[in-house]
Amino acid sequence: MNPDEAARIQPPVIAVVGPTGSGKSDLGVRLALELDGEVINADAMQFYRGMDIGTAKVTLAERRGVPHHLLDMMDVTEEASVSDFQSECRAVIEEIHSRGKRAIMVGGSGLYVRAALDVLEFPGTDPVLRKRLEEACATVGLGVLRERLHSVDPESAARVADARRVIRALEVFELTGRPFSSYMPKREYFQPAVQIGLDVDRTQLKERLAERVHRMVDAGLLEEVRRLDEQGLRKGKTASRALGYAQFLKVLDGDIGVAQAAEETIVATRQFARRQLTWFRADPRIHWLDWQDPELVEKAAALC
Rank of each mutant, 00 (worst) to 15 (best):
D52H: 12
L31K: 07
E94Q: 13
P123Y: 08
E38I: 01
E121G: 04
G110M: 13
A80I: 12
A42P: 00
I96Q: 00
A44I: 12
K24C: 08
L71E: 10
S22Q: 03
L117M: 05
D52P: 02
V13F: 08
N41A: 07
T77C: 03
P19Q: 13
G107S: 03
I104F: 02
F47D: 05
I53C: 09
L27F: 04
L33T: 05
G100N: 07
F122H: 06
L71C: 11
R102Y: 08
A42Q: 00
Q46H: 03
L120G: 00
D75L: 11
Y112D: 02
L120A: 07
C89L: 06
E94I: 06
T125H: 07
S87N: 07
D75N: 09
V29R: 05
V58F: 06
V92T: 15
G23H: 02
R49L: 11
Y48G: 09
V119P: 00
E78H: 06
E78N: 01
A61F: 10
V29N: 01
A15N: 02
V76Y: 05
G37M: 04
V113A: 10
A103H: 04
T55E: 04
R64P: 03
P67R: 12
R64L: 14
H68L: 10
M73V: 15
L71S: 07
R30S: 07
V39A: 05
E62D: 12
G54E: 09
L117G: 01
D26N: 09
Y48Q: 09
F47V: 09
D52Q: 13
S83R: 12
G124L: 12
F47A: 14
V16S: 08
I53F: 08
E62R: 14
D84G: 09
S22C: 14
A61E: 13
T20E: 00
S87V: 14
R90V: 10
T125I: 07
L117T: 02
E79N: 05
R30W: 02
V13T: 14
R90Q: 10
L60Q: 14
L71Y: 12
T77N: 01
T125P: 00
L60E: 15
E95S: 14
Y112P: 02
P19V: 14
D43H: 06
V119W: 01
G37A: 05
I53N: 03
Q46T: 11
T77V: 15
R99I: 04
L35Q: 02
R90E: 06
T55V: 09
I53R: 04
G21C: 05
S87C: 06
R114F: 07
G110A: 14
D72R: 14
H68K: 03
V13N: 06
I104K: 00
